[in-house]
Computed example of a mutant assay.
Amino acid sequence: MSSGLSYKIAVLVFLQNEAGEHLLLLRAKPPNYGIWSPIGGKLEMHLGESPFECAVRETFEETGFVIKSDDLHLFAAIAEKAYEGQSHWLIFLFNCKKVLPQLPPDMHEGKFGFFSRATIDTLPIPDTDRSALWPIYDKYRDRFVMLKANCAPGQPVKVEIEQIT
Rank of each mutant, 00 (worst) to 15 (best):
C54Y: 04
C96L: 03
L123G: 02
K111T: 12
G85M: 02
I161S: 10
I9P: 02
L123N: 08
Q16P: 02
F114A: 07
S37I: 05
N32R: 11
C151S: 13
F94H: 02
L23M: 04
D127S: 10
E109N: 13
G48V: 12
I39S: 01
A77H: 08
Q86F: 09
E21P: 03
L100Y: 10
F94G: 00
S6Y: 11
W134Q: 06
S69F: 01
L103H: 07
W89V: 10
P153L: 14
L24K: 08
G20N: 07
E61N: 06
Q163I: 08
A28I: 10
H108W: 06
C151W: 04
F92A: 12
M146K: 11
V145I: 15
N32D: 15
F60N: 12
A76T: 02
M1S: 11
A28P: 04
I125Y: 07
L15H: 01
S69M: 07
V145F: 09
G20M: 12
G4L: 03
K81Q: 10
P156N: 12
G48N: 04
A77R: 07
T63F: 06
F144D: 00
M107H: 14
S131G: 05
S37P: 02
R141A: 04
T122Y: 09
N150D: 15
E44D: 15
L90A: 04
